[in-house]
Amino acid sequence: MPHDVSNTSAKATTPGGLNVAVLVSIGRHPLTARTRRADQDARAVEMALTLQSASVSLLHAGQQDSENEEAIRGYLGMGIDSVNLIEQKPQADVIPALAKALRASAAQLVLTGTRAETGEASGITPYLLAEALGWPIITGLAAVEKIEQGTAVVLQALPRGKRRRLRIRLPAIATVDSSAPPARQSAFGPAKRGELAIHLEPSAIDEALGAWHIQPARKRPKRLKIVKASSARDRFKAAAAKADGGGGQTLTDVTPEQGAEAIFKLLKEEGVLR
């Protein structure tokens, strides 16, 4: 069918069963703040579902209440039978629980959104998980091209539509952002029938988070962008123009030490490190 989302994305071929775990979070609609499936996480689920002969399991660490359940069921509606819900206290640091579950699940590829739509939404979870598990991490995954003999060939999305082909060793963690294909429609029937497999895990209370003072973000005024264009062509050029970067350098074929040194130097120049 021409309108079928699942057929439009390229199918990656994988010999044998590949265990893919997708970490899903509770999303929040930007206008109405209603809970929903998080957009980037849903794209991660979509990517996992388009991998051929992969067994997909969904993992969520958090609280179980009716609002959250509705959001989680949004992922089930994409055609998944069950979600593993690791029950955690609201103030918990979910990294240890997730790391433990992933180690136990024998997942070879872990997909997740780049950053959550609720909670701290710092985007740091995948990095902390990668650190805890000792796995490589890849960001901005656009497509999985091939998985064979414990490595995956993937496309990483770079700004302005560029793609970079990478070969990564599995197991690995990959994050998905909005350059990945959009998620398929969530259907009501499967969402309602899908199972929430609840696992009780001790919560590691996040002391630092408890000490924080959290307040709603202040709306900052937007800087007006004045386009002094007289013709439609100029306006189009202004809208489509590249961001003025200019500086910077591209390092290729350098040792990790050289790379680290260059980054260190840049951070000092920019005054981030003193």
Binding site: H3, D4, M78, Q185, S186, A187, F188, G189
Partner: peptide, 9 residues
């Protein structure tokens, strides 16, 4: 729509 999740366009 409810079972396939396949509403077009």
């Amino acid at each position: 729509t409810l079972e396939h999740g396949n509403t077009p366009n």
